[in-house]
């Protein structure tokens, strides 16, 4: 059992410091985790979403290029088709490098397959160089359907990553709550701690001071010993004992002086 009031105070304040430190470390760790999650979302899902959007744009441009080619603007049409193809292949490579979800490889493979079929159909129209009416018929009967199939596959990849991003944002929201919680609870605990400390200071500091003051005020030499009513064995008990020693010495001197 610790008897010194000084040690008691130092230890109790150290406890408070430790408690606040733990809360701070926990909050920092959670915030760091949150930062990692945000970075993860940007690196993984957002890149895939960007790649899917690039594919979608390029796919639509390729289709527009084909329609241009069919209505007679063959040079610009062909150019648009080739540039779009390069963009789609590049976006597909980006998506392949950035696989983070379980279903993602399947979706990328669907896009590759769908786009290959569509692009092959486009090239067939270009190679055959049929008159516009015939080319349009091939487009309506075959190419357009393949275009929609490829577009659906790209859309599925986009949806998958968007859903995952939404899910990740929920996790981040939860993490931010977890990061705040230790700070909030520490605040409540610190208030509780302060109240308890105040209570103990009142009991173990102010009360003995008051008791000793009152006993000194009511003291007269005939009483003999000074009774401060201190029950603890701390510095106040020592003070009471020393005061009694002082009284004894003073009384002894007074008695000897008389003699």
């Amino acid at each position: 059992m610790i008897r010194s009031l000084q040690i008691k105070l130092v230890l109790s304040l150290s406890l408070l410091v430790v408690m606040l430190l733990v809360a701070a470390v926990m909050s920092m760790m959670e915030f760091r985790n949150m930062g990692d999650s945000v970075k993860g979302v940007l690196n993984n899902n957002f890149s895939s979403i960007e790649a899917a959007k690039r594919m979608m744009d390029a796919l639509e441009r390729e289709d527009s290029g084909l329609l241009l080619w069919i209505i007679g603007d063959r040079e610009e049409g062909a150019q648009t088709i080739h540039s779009s193809q390069a963009i789609i292949r590049s976006a597909l490579r980006d998506a392949e490098k950035n696989i983070t979800e379980t279903d993602e490889p399947r979706h990328i493979s669907d896009i590759t397959e769908g786009y290959d079929a569509y692009h092959a159909s486009v090239l067939t129209i270009l190679e055959e160089a049929s008159p516009p009416a015939e080319a349009k018929e091939t487009y309506d009967n075959e190419t357009r359907l393949l275009f929609f199939r490829a577009k659906l596959a790209v859309n599925a990849l986009l949806m998958l990553n968007q859903e995952q991003m939404y899910h990740q944002s929920e996790i981040i929201q939860e993490r931010s709550r977890r990061a705040m919680m230790p700070a909030f609870i520490s605040l409540v605990a610190a208030v509780l701690f302060a109240l308890l400390l105040f209570y103990f200071i009142r009991i173990y500091f102010f009360r003995p001071v008051k008791q000793l003051t009152e006993s000194i005020r009511d003291y007269y030499p005939e009483k003999g010993r000074l009774d401060g009513g201190i029950v603890t064995r701390d510095e106040f008990k020592q003070l009471e004992e020393e005061m009694n020693n002082l009284i004894s010495r003073l009384l002894w001197r007074r008695d000897n002086h008389k003699e």
Binding site: I2, K8, L11, S12, L15, L16, V18, M19, V22, I185, S186, A189, L192, F193, L196, L197, F200, I203, Y204
Partner: peptide, 12 residues
Amino acid sequence: MCAALGTFPYLF
């Protein structure tokens, strides 16, 4: 938290 709040009264 429990350990800190539990130890505190024990000290005094």
